[in-house]
Nucleic acid binder design. Structure first.
Length: 281
DNA sequence: AACGGACTCAACCGCATATTG
DNA sequence: CCAATATGCGGTTGAGTCCGT
Protein backbone atom coordinates (compact mmCIF):
# COMPACT_ATOMS: atom_id res chain seq x y z
CA UNK A 1 0.00 0.00 0.00
CA UNK A 2 2.79 2.35 0.83
CA UNK A 3 4.43 1.65 -2.49
CA UNK A 4 2.06 3.90 -4.29
CA UNK A 5 3.51 7.15 -5.38
CA UNK A 6 2.68 10.13 -3.30
CA UNK A 7 2.93 13.36 -5.10
CA UNK A 8 4.11 16.57 -3.65
CA UNK A 9 3.29 19.67 -5.54
CA UNK A 10 3.26 23.36 -5.22
CA UNK A 11 -0.29 24.30 -4.67
CA UNK A 12 -1.41 27.84 -5.13
CA UNK A 13 -5.09 27.07 -5.36
CA UNK A 14 -7.75 26.64 -2.71
CA UNK A 15 -6.79 29.87 -1.08
CA UNK A 16 -4.33 28.14 1.18
CA UNK A 17 -1.80 30.60 2.38
CA UNK A 18 1.43 29.25 3.71
CA UNK A 19 4.16 31.31 5.18
CA UNK A 20 7.07 29.85 3.30
CA UNK A 21 7.93 27.93 0.16
CA UNK A 22 8.53 24.80 2.21
CA UNK A 23 5.15 25.02 3.83
CA UNK A 24 3.52 25.22 0.42
CA UNK A 25 4.46 21.63 -0.43
CA UNK A 26 1.03 20.05 -0.43
CA UNK A 27 0.76 16.33 -0.15
CA UNK A 28 -1.76 14.52 -2.32
CA UNK A 29 -2.87 10.95 -2.68
CA UNK A 30 -3.85 8.36 -0.09
CA UNK A 31 -3.70 9.26 3.57
CA UNK A 32 -1.29 7.46 5.88
CA UNK A 33 -2.26 6.09 9.29
CA UNK A 34 -0.08 8.74 10.85
CA UNK A 35 -1.90 11.53 9.07
CA UNK A 36 -5.22 9.99 10.05
CA UNK A 37 -4.34 9.92 13.71
CA UNK A 38 -3.08 13.50 13.59
CA UNK A 39 -6.36 14.59 12.05
CA UNK A 40 -8.48 12.55 14.45
CA UNK A 41 -6.63 13.88 17.49
CA UNK A 42 -6.83 17.43 16.27
CA UNK A 43 -10.55 17.28 15.54
CA UNK A 44 -11.24 15.58 18.87
CA UNK A 45 -9.56 18.44 20.68
CA UNK A 46 -10.59 21.42 18.55
CA UNK A 47 -13.70 20.23 16.78
CA UNK A 48 -14.61 20.26 13.10
CA UNK A 49 -14.49 23.23 10.77
CA UNK A 50 -11.92 25.84 9.79
CA UNK A 51 -10.25 23.18 7.73
CA UNK A 52 -7.55 25.32 6.16
CA UNK A 53 -6.28 26.60 9.47
CA UNK A 54 -6.74 23.13 10.94
CA UNK A 55 -4.48 21.66 8.29
CA UNK A 56 -1.79 24.22 9.05
CA UNK A 57 -2.09 24.07 12.83
CA UNK A 58 -2.06 20.29 12.91
CA UNK A 59 1.01 20.26 10.70
CA UNK A 60 -0.70 18.31 7.97
CA UNK A 61 0.67 19.07 4.53
CA UNK A 62 -2.80 18.79 3.07
CA UNK A 63 -5.34 21.26 1.84
CA UNK A 64 -8.27 22.09 4.06
CA UNK A 65 -10.51 20.46 1.51
CA UNK A 66 -8.57 17.25 1.66
CA UNK A 67 -8.77 17.19 5.47
CA UNK A 68 -12.48 17.85 5.42
CA UNK A 69 -13.10 15.11 2.89
CA UNK A 70 -10.98 12.61 4.75
CA UNK A 71 -12.79 13.37 7.99
CA UNK A 72 -16.30 13.29 6.58
CA UNK A 73 -15.89 10.27 4.35
CA UNK A 74 -13.65 8.09 6.43
CA UNK A 75 -12.58 9.17 9.90
CA UNK A 76 -15.72 10.69 11.36
CA UNK A 77 -17.39 8.51 14.02
CA UNK A 78 -20.47 6.57 12.89
CA UNK A 79 -19.34 6.34 9.30
CA UNK A 80 -20.88 3.11 8.14
CA UNK A 81 -18.68 0.96 5.96
CA UNK A 82 -19.26 -2.18 3.99
CA UNK A 83 -21.85 -3.38 1.54
CA UNK A 84 -24.90 -1.31 0.82
CA UNK A 85 -27.82 -3.32 2.17
CA UNK A 86 -30.94 -4.15 0.19
CA UNK A 87 -32.92 -1.62 2.22
CA UNK A 88 -30.34 1.02 1.49
CA UNK A 89 -30.36 0.16 -2.20
CA UNK A 90 -34.11 0.49 -2.26
CA UNK A 91 -33.96 3.80 -0.47
CA UNK A 92 -31.30 5.10 -2.84
CA UNK A 93 -33.36 4.14 -5.88
CA UNK A 94 -36.42 5.73 -4.33
CA UNK A 95 -34.73 8.96 -3.36
CA UNK A 96 -32.84 9.24 -6.63
CA UNK A 97 -36.12 8.98 -8.50
CA UNK A 98 -37.28 12.04 -6.56
CA UNK A 99 -34.17 14.12 -6.26
CA UNK A 100 -31.83 13.05 -9.05
CA UNK A 101 -28.10 13.35 -8.43
CA UNK A 102 -28.50 15.18 -5.15
CA UNK A 103 -26.06 12.86 -3.45
CA UNK A 104 -25.59 14.87 -0.30
CA UNK A 105 -29.33 15.14 0.20
CA UNK A 106 -29.79 11.42 -0.41
CA UNK A 107 -26.95 10.63 1.98
CA UNK A 108 -28.70 12.55 4.74
CA UNK A 109 -31.43 9.91 4.63
CA UNK A 110 -28.98 7.02 5.00
CA UNK A 111 -27.39 7.27 8.43
CA UNK A 112 -23.67 6.70 8.33
CA UNK A 113 -23.41 6.69 4.57
CA UNK A 114 -21.59 9.43 2.72
CA UNK A 115 -22.53 11.18 -0.47
CA UNK A 116 -19.35 9.81 -2.00
CA UNK A 117 -20.32 6.25 -1.21
CA UNK A 118 -23.80 6.62 -2.63
CA UNK A 119 -22.47 8.33 -5.73
CA UNK A 120 -20.00 5.49 -6.20
CA UNK A 121 -22.76 2.93 -5.74
CA UNK A 122 -24.89 4.67 -8.34
CA UNK A 123 -22.12 4.93 -10.88
CA UNK A 124 -20.65 1.47 -10.41
CA UNK A 125 -23.93 -0.42 -10.21
CA UNK A 126 -26.86 1.47 -11.60
CA UNK A 127 -25.21 3.40 -14.42
CA UNK A 128 -23.26 0.31 -15.38
CA UNK A 129 -26.45 -1.70 -15.73
CA UNK A 130 -28.12 1.04 -17.74
CA UNK A 131 -25.21 0.83 -20.15
CA UNK A 132 -25.51 -2.92 -20.28
CA UNK A 133 -29.17 -2.49 -21.19
CA UNK A 134 -28.09 0.01 -23.82
CA UNK A 135 -30.28 2.76 -22.50
CA UNK A 136 -29.64 6.09 -20.90
CA UNK A 137 -29.73 6.05 -17.11
CA UNK A 138 -31.99 9.11 -17.21
CA UNK A 139 -34.31 7.74 -19.88
CA UNK A 140 -37.93 7.00 -19.05
CA UNK A 141 -37.34 3.39 -20.06
CA UNK A 142 -34.67 2.87 -17.52
CA UNK A 143 -36.43 4.80 -14.78
CA UNK A 144 -39.53 2.70 -15.34
CA UNK A 145 -37.47 -0.46 -15.28
CA UNK A 146 -36.01 0.57 -11.95
CA UNK A 147 -39.39 1.61 -10.60
CA UNK A 148 -41.48 -1.28 -11.77
CA UNK A 149 -39.00 -4.11 -11.84
CA UNK A 150 -35.99 -3.58 -9.65
CA UNK A 151 -37.63 -1.86 -6.74
CA UNK A 152 -40.44 -4.40 -6.34
CA UNK A 153 -37.87 -7.11 -6.68
CA UNK A 154 -35.74 -5.55 -4.00
CA UNK A 155 -38.76 -5.37 -1.75
CA UNK A 156 -39.46 -9.01 -2.46
CA UNK A 157 -35.95 -9.92 -1.43
CA UNK A 158 -36.10 -7.79 1.66
CA UNK A 159 -39.31 -9.46 2.68
CA UNK A 160 -37.91 -12.91 1.92
CA UNK A 161 -34.81 -12.16 3.95
CA UNK A 162 -36.74 -10.77 6.88
CA UNK A 163 -39.00 -13.80 7.05
CA UNK A 164 -36.10 -16.25 6.84
CA UNK A 165 -33.91 -14.39 9.26
CA UNK A 166 -34.62 -12.39 12.36
CA UNK A 167 -31.07 -11.12 12.52
CA UNK A 168 -30.35 -8.17 14.71
CA UNK A 169 -28.76 -6.34 11.82
CA UNK A 170 -32.05 -6.29 10.01
CA UNK A 171 -33.80 -5.05 13.11
CA UNK A 172 -31.15 -2.37 13.30
CA UNK A 173 -31.75 -1.38 9.69
CA UNK A 174 -35.45 -1.18 10.29
CA UNK A 175 -34.85 1.07 13.23
CA UNK A 176 -32.62 3.32 11.18
CA UNK A 177 -35.13 3.53 8.39
CA UNK A 178 -37.93 4.30 10.81
CA UNK A 179 -35.84 7.12 12.19
CA UNK A 180 -35.18 8.24 8.67
CA UNK A 181 -38.87 8.21 8.00
CA UNK A 182 -39.51 10.43 10.98
CA UNK A 183 -36.85 12.86 9.79
CA UNK A 184 -38.32 12.88 6.32
CA UNK A 185 -41.81 13.51 7.40
CA UNK A 186 -40.66 16.49 9.34
CA UNK A 187 -39.01 17.78 6.19
CA UNK A 188 -41.94 17.02 3.93
CA UNK A 189 -40.54 14.01 2.07
CA UNK A 190 -42.40 10.72 1.87
CA UNK A 191 -39.92 7.88 1.93
CA UNK A 192 -40.32 4.16 1.74
CA UNK A 193 -41.43 2.86 5.09
CA UNK A 194 -40.20 -0.22 6.86
CA UNK A 195 -42.02 0.37 10.10
CA UNK A 196 -44.68 -2.28 9.77
CA UNK A 197 -45.33 -5.46 7.84
CA UNK A 198 -45.78 -3.74 4.54
CA UNK A 199 -43.28 -1.86 2.48
CA UNK A 200 -44.84 1.01 0.66
CA UNK A 201 -43.24 2.94 -2.11
CA UNK A 202 -45.30 6.01 -2.43
CA UNK A 203 -45.76 8.37 -5.28
CA UNK A 204 -42.88 8.13 -7.71
CA UNK A 205 -42.12 10.89 -10.05
CA UNK A 206 -41.22 9.74 -13.51
CA UNK A 207 -39.01 12.74 -13.99
CA UNK A 208 -35.82 13.61 -12.22
CA UNK A 209 -36.88 16.10 -9.67
CA UNK A 210 -40.12 16.70 -7.86
CA UNK A 211 -42.14 18.69 -10.30
CA UNK A 212 -43.03 15.95 -12.76
CA UNK A 213 -45.73 13.84 -11.18
CA UNK A 214 -46.98 12.04 -14.26
CA UNK A 215 -46.58 8.65 -12.66
CA UNK A 216 -47.82 7.30 -9.42
CA UNK A 217 -47.21 3.76 -8.37
CA UNK A 218 -47.56 1.88 -5.18
CA UNK A 219 -45.85 -1.38 -4.37
CA UNK A 220 -46.89 -3.23 -1.26
CA UNK A 221 -45.27 -6.18 0.34
CA UNK A 222 -48.07 -7.80 2.26
CA UNK A 223 -47.73 -9.51 5.58
CA UNK A 224 -47.96 -12.93 3.98
CA UNK A 225 -45.06 -12.14 1.70
CA UNK A 226 -47.13 -11.53 -1.40
CA UNK A 227 -46.60 -8.45 -3.47
CA UNK A 228 -49.27 -6.12 -4.72
CA UNK A 229 -48.67 -3.26 -7.06
CA UNK A 230 -50.73 -0.50 -8.55
CA UNK A 231 -49.63 1.65 -11.43
CA UNK A 232 -51.61 4.75 -12.12
CA UNK A 233 -49.64 5.56 -15.21
CA UNK A 234 -51.19 4.59 -18.52
CA UNK A 235 -48.84 2.63 -20.71
CA UNK A 236 -46.57 1.60 -17.90
CA UNK A 237 -45.33 -1.92 -17.54
CA UNK A 238 -48.13 -4.17 -18.70
CA UNK A 239 -49.86 -6.54 -16.33
CA UNK A 240 -48.92 -9.38 -18.66
CA UNK A 241 -45.27 -8.63 -18.27
CA UNK A 242 -45.71 -8.17 -14.59
CA UNK A 243 -47.27 -11.61 -14.33
CA UNK A 244 -44.41 -13.08 -16.33
CA UNK A 245 -42.10 -12.34 -13.45
CA UNK A 246 -40.97 -15.63 -12.01
CA UNK A 247 -40.31 -15.33 -8.32
CA UNK A 248 -39.46 -18.96 -7.74
CA UNK A 249 -36.00 -18.65 -9.23
CA UNK A 250 -35.39 -15.63 -7.08
CA UNK A 251 -35.83 -17.65 -3.93
CA UNK A 252 -33.43 -20.27 -5.21
CA UNK A 253 -30.68 -17.76 -5.72
CA UNK A 254 -31.16 -16.02 -2.40
CA UNK A 255 -28.24 -16.35 0.01
CA UNK A 256 -29.06 -18.10 3.26
CA UNK A 257 -29.31 -14.96 5.32
CA UNK A 258 -30.63 -12.82 2.55
CA UNK A 259 -27.90 -10.23 2.97
CA UNK A 260 -24.75 -12.07 2.07
CA UNK A 261 -25.01 -10.79 -1.45
CA UNK A 262 -26.73 -7.47 -1.57
CA UNK A 263 -26.16 -7.13 -5.28
CA UNK A 264 -29.30 -7.35 -7.31
CA UNK A 265 -27.76 -6.79 -10.68
CA UNK A 266 -27.58 -10.36 -11.86
CA UNK A 267 -27.55 -11.59 -15.46
CA UNK A 268 -30.96 -13.02 -14.82
CA UNK A 269 -32.38 -9.64 -13.88
CA UNK A 270 -30.67 -7.95 -16.77
CA UNK A 271 -32.08 -10.36 -19.33
CA UNK A 272 -35.53 -9.87 -17.85
CA UNK A 273 -35.15 -6.13 -18.19
CA UNK A 274 -33.95 -6.50 -21.76
CA UNK A 275 -37.13 -8.41 -22.48
CA UNK A 276 -39.15 -5.75 -20.76
CA UNK A 277 -37.52 -2.93 -22.65
CA UNK A 278 -37.76 -4.76 -25.96
CA UNK A 279 -41.45 -5.39 -25.39
CA UNK A 280 -42.25 -1.83 -24.52
CA UNK A 281 -40.40 -0.23 -27.40
C1' DA B 1 2.10 -18.05 -12.93
C1' DA B 2 1.45 -14.12 -15.82
C1' DC B 3 -1.19 -11.03 -18.10
C1' DG B 4 -4.86 -7.79 -19.10
C1' DG B 5 -9.34 -5.95 -18.70
C1' DA B 6 -13.03 -4.80 -15.48
C1' DC B 7 -14.25 -3.05 -11.26
C1' DT B 8 -14.14 -0.42 -6.86
C1' DC B 9 -13.67 3.44 -4.14
C1' DA B 10 -10.72 7.04 -2.03
C1' DA B 11 -9.33 11.26 -3.35
C1' DC B 12 -8.95 15.21 -6.37
C1' DC B 13 -10.88 18.99 -9.27
C1' DG B 14 -13.79 22.75 -10.60
C1' DC B 15 -17.52 25.36 -9.64
C1' DA B 16 -21.25 27.49 -6.84
C1' DT B 17 -22.57 29.36 -2.69
C1' DA B 18 -21.80 31.15 1.98
C1' DT B 19 -19.21 33.74 5.11
C1' DT B 20 -16.08 37.17 6.67
C1' DG B 21 -13.57 41.48 6.92
C1' DC C 1 -21.24 46.65 -1.44
C1' DC C 2 -17.12 44.21 -2.70
C1' DA C 3 -13.27 41.13 -2.62
C1' DA C 4 -11.12 37.42 -0.41
C1' DT C 5 -11.58 33.23 1.72
C1' DA C 6 -13.97 29.04 3.32
C1' DT C 7 -17.13 25.45 2.63
C1' DG C 8 -19.96 22.16 0.20
C1' DC C 9 -21.31 19.61 -3.75
C1' DG C 10 -21.25 16.83 -7.94
C1' DG C 11 -18.26 15.02 -11.50
C1' DT C 12 -14.14 12.67 -12.57
C1' DT C 13 -9.80 10.24 -12.07
C1' DG C 14 -6.61 6.67 -11.20
C1' DA C 15 -4.26 3.26 -8.00
C1' DG C 16 -5.15 -1.04 -6.19
C1' DT C 17 -7.67 -5.27 -6.48
C1' DC C 18 -10.28 -8.87 -8.55
C1' DC C 19 -11.12 -12.20 -11.89
C1' DG C 20 -11.13 -14.59 -16.16
C1' DT C 21 -8.06 -16.44 -19.67
Amino acid sequence: METMSVQFMRCLSDSDSYGSEEEMAIKKGPWTEEEDSVLINYVNVHGEGHWNSLARSAGLKRTGKSCRLRWLNYLRPNVRRGNITLQEQLLILDLHSRWGNRWAKIAEQLPGRTDNEIKNYWRTRVVKQAKQLKCDVNSKQFRDAVRFVWMPRLMERIQAASSSSSSSSYAHDKTNLCNTKAQNESSGAKPITFCDNSVVVSSYSSGVGLSDTSTTSSCNLMGDGSLSMDCAEKGSMSSTLWQQWDYSDLQASEPANGFGDADLWTDENISFLQQYLAHDF
